[in-house]
């Protein structure tokens, strides 16, 4: 069975090999002695090699110390198995909300999407059901309004307008 490093190595190995197949058929321009595929192949090839090394090292470490006993050496103990991090539901929620924000941004426009995102994420991160709705809304409005004002008015950075809302 593979450990944390082994899995990571496998993923990198698969990724680099897949990308390596994509470098086939890249054209060879006449003006440059080495084509656009030369450098990527070096990089992807060495990534694949390193990943294989990582997987190998992980397997070796596991064989050397099958089932680490309590109090055994830290140096030869295999790296830990992948485990879910402690606060994973919250992490997942944050990623989910952020993805929704990014996807809705072009449609809803910066102001609406930001307001909703800041509000929703605050609500998600403050699990205790305290009556903080007003506070949450105030922070959401303030963040949206201040950033929009500063960027559009003073810094001439144009924030996205909503395709559906024109706002």
């Amino acid at each position: 069975m593979l450990g944390r490093d082994g899995w990571a190595g496998l993923v990198c190995l698969a990724g680099s090999l897949w990308l390596l197949t994509l470098t086939r058929g890249l054209p060879q321009p006449a003006l440059v002695p080495i084509g656009p595929g030369f450098y990527p192949r070096i990089i992807l090839g060495s990534t694949a090699l390193l990943s294989a090394l990582l997987v190998g090292a992980d397997l070796l470490a596991r064989r050397r110390a099958p089932g680490p006993r309590q109090g055994q050496t830290a140096g030869t103990a295999p790296p830990p198995r992948p485990r879910l991090p402690p606060g994973w539901p919250l992490v997942l929620t944050t990623f989910g909300l952020f993805t929704a924000y990014v996807l809705l941004l072009p449609g809803l426009g910066y102001r609406l999407a930001t307001f909703l995102f800041v509000g929703a994420l605050q609500a998600a991160l403050e699990p205790r059901g305290r009556r903080r709705w007003i506070f949450i809304v105030v922070v959401a409005v303030a963040t949206t309004w201040v950033t929009h004002l500063v960027f559009e008015t003073y810094l001439s950075v144009l924030l996205p307008r909503g395709r559906w809302t024109a706002f």
């Binding site: 490093d5 990571a8 190595g9 990198c12 680099s16 990308l19 994509l22 470098t23 890249l26 054209p27 321009p29 003006l31 440059v32 084509g35 656009p36 595929g37 450098y39 990527p40 990089i43 992807l44 060495s46 990534t47 390193l50 990943s51 090394l53 990582l54 090292a57």
Partner: peptide
């Protein structure tokens, strides 16, 4: 090894897209 892989992932991110010399789309 992990440090080197990390560096290689960074380099991989830069090879995607138009190549810097002739603009040939890659990957």
């Amino acid at each position: 090894v992990k440090g080197l892989i990390s560096g290689a992932i960074g380099l991989m991110a830069t090879i995607i897209g138009a190549d810097p010399i002739m603009g040939v789309p890659r990957l």
